[in-house]
C-alpha cells in the first residue's frame, strides 16, 4: 500500500464513518474496514476502478466529484478522505469547503509539486515535469491543479481551514531528517488533516 494510505489508515480512529472521495480501486477503504472496523463509502468515476472496488467488497458509488457533494450533507461522516485526487478537480477549493461541510474532518493527500525532482526537471530540461508519481505529459494529464506544500498551506490560511496534523513523506519512506527540515523541497507526498476553524 502507498505510504500516504498507510499514514491515513493510522490517523483514522476505529469505528469511524468515512467518505473516500476518488477511492480508486478501494484499497484504502478495504484496509480500513478490515483493520479498523471503519464503515463508509467511496466515490469513484472510473469504470475499471469501480469494478475492482466491487470485487474488493467495499461500498463504491460511481460519481464525478466535480458534481458536488451537498447530497451527502446529512450523513454524519466523521472523516472525508481524498487521497491523490485534489489535483484532478475543476474547483479544488469548493470541494475542500464541501468536505468540511459534510464531515467533521478532512484528510487530504497530494503529490507535492515542489519536490526537488520536479524543480530540477523544469529548471534543467525546461519541460513540464514527468516522474513515476506524475507519469503524464502536459497535454494529456488529468492533473490540472498541481500544488506545492507551501501553496496548500497558504490556501488553508486564506480559506480558514485549520491544519490539525500534517506529514510530508517520500514514496518509499516516511521519516527522514530532510523531510522535517525542507518538506516542500524533499517531500514527494503531502498528507494533511484539516477541520473548520
Amino acid at each position: 500500500m502507498r505510504v500516504d494510505l498507510q499514514v491515513v489508515r493510522e490517523w483514522i480512529p476505529e469505528n469511524s464513518h468515512v467518505l473516500d472521495l476518488g477511492c480508486g480501486d478501494g484499497t484504502l477503504l478495504a484496509s480500513l474496514q478490515e483493520s479498523r472496523s471503519v464503515t463508509g463509502y467511496g466515490l469513484e468515476l472510473s469504470n475499471d476502478n469501480i469494478i475492482q472496488a466491487i470485487r474488493r467488497g467495499v461500498n463504491v458509488i460511481q460519481r464525478d466529484l466535480n458534481d458536488g457533494l451537498s447530497s451527502f450533507s446529512e450523513d454524519g461522516f466523521d472523516f472525508i478522505l481524498m487521497t491523490h485526487a485534489l489535483q484532478v478537480l475543476k474547483n479544488p477549493v469548493a470541494v475542500i469547503r464541501e468536505m468540511l461541510t459534510i464531515g467533521e474532518r478532512a484528510i487530504l493527500t497530494f503529490p507535492n509539486f515542489g519536490h526537488w525532482r520536479n524543480r530540477a526537471y523544469l529548471g534543467l530540461k525546461g519541460k513540464m515535469p514527468m516522474s513515476e508519481t506524475l507519469p503524464h505529459q502536459w497535454h494529456n494529464t488529468p492533473n490540472i491543479h498541481m500544488c506545492t506544500v507551501k501553496d496548500f498551506e497558504l490556501l488553508c490560511k486564506e480559506n480558514g481551514f485549520k491544519i490539525e496534523k500534517k506529514m510530508i513523506v517520500d514514496r518509499n519512506q516516511r521519516e527522514g531528517i530532510g523531510l522535517n527540515i525542507l518538506p516542500n523541497l524533499l517531500g514527494e507526498i503531502a498528507i494533511y488533516q484539516i477541520t473548520r476553524r
Partner: peptide, 8 residues
Amino acid sequence: RRPVDYVA
C-alpha cells in the same frame, strides 16, 4: 448506512 454499490 446500508451497504450499497452504485454503478452509473
